[in-house]
């Protein structure tokens, strides 16, 4: 079991990442992985990849659950709950406050600028999140092929993403990855 200081530092780091996670939580995955796997060695790369996979396979608020599982691995249920709370609490308060303000100034020139300026950066972060997760947990060429196929099918067909996740799971279950 890790010292309590580790839990506090994890919760603090998740809180910081959550409040700057413009464009959504997937964008924090590369930074979070560096922090918990590479810098501190609290989780193995495989553990991290497992947490990511599990939250895709179950319903519920998936990124909040992912933070909870990382917290759970480190310090049990209390840290899991605290990690969940800091993932959505501060951003929620911010959205709540900002919404009225944003709505009042809709269609103004400066707001369009903010919108157009923020969008590409947030999109780059989301793609980076996917890229890092595709390579997490020593993924071999077969896993990368599954990722590539999922990208292609998502972009070129109107297939329900759930089928792609299920197909990936089936291929993996058959020991092909």
């Amino acid at each position: 079991m890790n010292p309590p200081g580790a839990s506090v530092s994890l919760i603090g780091h998740i809180a910081l990442l959550a409040i700057i996670s413009f464009g959504g939580v997937p964008g924090v995955l590369p930074d979070l992985r560096d922090f918990v796997v590479t810098a501190n060695g609290w989780l193995t790369d495989r553990d991290f990849a497992n947490c990511f996979a599990i939250v895709q396979a179950i319903p519920g608020p998936n990124m909040i659950l992912m933070m909870s599982f990382i917290g759970w691995k480190l310090g049990g249920l209390p840290v899991a709950i605290a990690s969940a709370l800091v993932t959505f609490g501060p951003p929620c308060a911010l959205s709540y406050t900002a919404f009225h303000f944003w709505d009042r100034f809709r269609e103004t020139a400066w707001q369009q600028r903010v919108r157009r300026g923020l969008a590409p950066v947030t999109i780059g972060l989301v793609i980076a999140g996917g890229y890092v997760m595709a390579r997490a947990g020593d993924a071999g060429w077969a896993s990368l092929a599954v990722t590539a196929a999922a990208i292609g099918l998502m972009l070129m067909t109107r297939i329900n993403p759930l089928w792609l996740v299920a197909a990936g799971g089936a291929l993996g279950g058959l020991g092909m990855l």
Partner: peptide, 19 residues
């Protein structure tokens, strides 16, 4: 094995969403 496959596909969905 299953988790490996799910993670690979889900990473693809994330990248596709970004694109």
């Amino acid at each position: 094995g299953i988790l490996r496959g799910v993670a690979a596909a889900a990473a693809g969905l994330l990248i596709a969403t970004g694109i």
